[in-house]
């Protein structure tokens, strides 16, 4: 299935704080963009001086504002360059290509109450969700933890039942008490750093919250690693994956049409069968089961890498 694309122009670039910048896109033809659902992301395509980057970013604006989309990007100085490109090179007036919104972190419409737990840049999907719930009058509550007030993006704009916590001030989300006193029918949503997700997952399980009422945004940005070669058995090509490119990006750079949706190890769309692996697959996705990972029979090329003598996959 090909990915449906939207042709947009950058309308605004606003520095929110030292690390975080907000971007607003409008349709190049001056028309309306599709409405979207809170929690949705778009994949932003970047032509970074000869390297094609495609990074997913949550939409952080109002889903009913069809005149433009907003994303909020945290600069990751240790990352592979997508966020740095956005911060340094994207300016108003630039023409860009983004995917249609895709939602892998949707609201559960049956919830009697939506409880949001945000860590740092994890605020972005909740900002859109709060807009959406406000339109339909649903009940929500946000608990938002950042390092310090200066890095609390949108802190001044978030109104309503919002609670702030700052690591530097030693204030932390009172997670156990908070989860324990939620009314029946509450759905919990968590987006933040890995440690926070594990903490929430473990605490919710300990308290006996039903698994289906606790939701996690589990994007993983592809991490750099050692370069490796891979044989693509269907295409009949052997390609090189440099250290700062993902296997998926390397396939695309070599003209191989590979399916994708989230580019963050969550959706399963890019899954490939492994034909031969002499070495270790570094699984970094949230899609394959532990058994599948252990058997080295499948790989998710958007985030996972390889170390060893030779790898061959069906693509």
């Amino acid at each position: 299935m090909s990915v449906a694309k939207l042709l947009v122009r950058v309308a605004e670039v606003e520095k929110i704080n030292d690390l975080i910048t907000r971007f607003r896109f409008v349709a190049r033809d001056g028309g309306l963009l599709p409405a979207f659902s809170g929690g949705a992301h778009v994949v932003v395509e970047m032509e970074d001086h000869g390297t094609r980057r495609m990074n997913p970013y949550s939409l952080s604006g109002d889903p009913e504002d069809r005149t433009g989309y907003e994303i909020t990007v945290r600069r990751d100085d240790a990352g592979r360059g997508g966020s740095i490109y956005m911060h340094r090179h994207v300016s108003p007036g630039m023409e860009m290509v983004i995917s249609h919104p895709v939602n892998l972190f949707p609201l559960d419409g049956r919830a009697k109450k939506h409880l949001f737990l945000a860590g740092g840049i994890g605020i972005t999907p909740f900002k859109a969700m709060i807009h959406q719930l406000s339109h339909i009058g649903a009940k929500w509550e946000l608990h938002y933890a950042t390092r310090n007030p200066a890095l609390c993006a949108y802190g001044d704009q978030l109104k309503g039942p919002v609670h702030f916590y700052y690591d530097d001030l030693k204030s932390f989300i009172p997670l156990r008490d908070l989860l324990a006193r939620q009314p029946l029918g509450t759905h919990v949503y968590c987006c933040g750093p890995k440690g926070m997700l594990s903490w929430v997952r473990a605490t919710a399980a300990e308290l006996g919250l039903p698994e289906h009422s606790v939701h996690f945004e589990e994007f993983t940005a592809p991490q750099p690693g050692a370069p490796f070669d891979v044989e693509l058995t269907l295409t009949g090509k052997t390609i090189h994956v440099p250290s700062h490119q993902s296997l998926l990006e390397a396939m695309e750079a070599n003209g191989v049409d590979a399916p994708y949706l989230c580019r963050g190890g969550a959706c399963g769309q890019c899954e490939c069968q492994v034909v031969k692996a002499e070495g270790q697959i570094l699984h970094r996705d949230h899609w394959l089961t532990d058994e599948e990972k252990a058997s080295n029979s499948k790989i998710m090329p958007c985030v996972s890498r390889f170390e060893g003598r030779s790898l061959a996959i069906e693509r």
Binding site: M1, A4, P34, S99, H100, V102, L261, Q269
Partner: peptide, 13 residues
């Protein structure tokens, strides 16, 4: 089902 869960807005089938 696997296919439909990946169905995208703007790309009906």
């Amino acid at each position: 089902l696997k296919f439909l869960l990946k169905l995208q807005h703007g790309a009906p089938v």
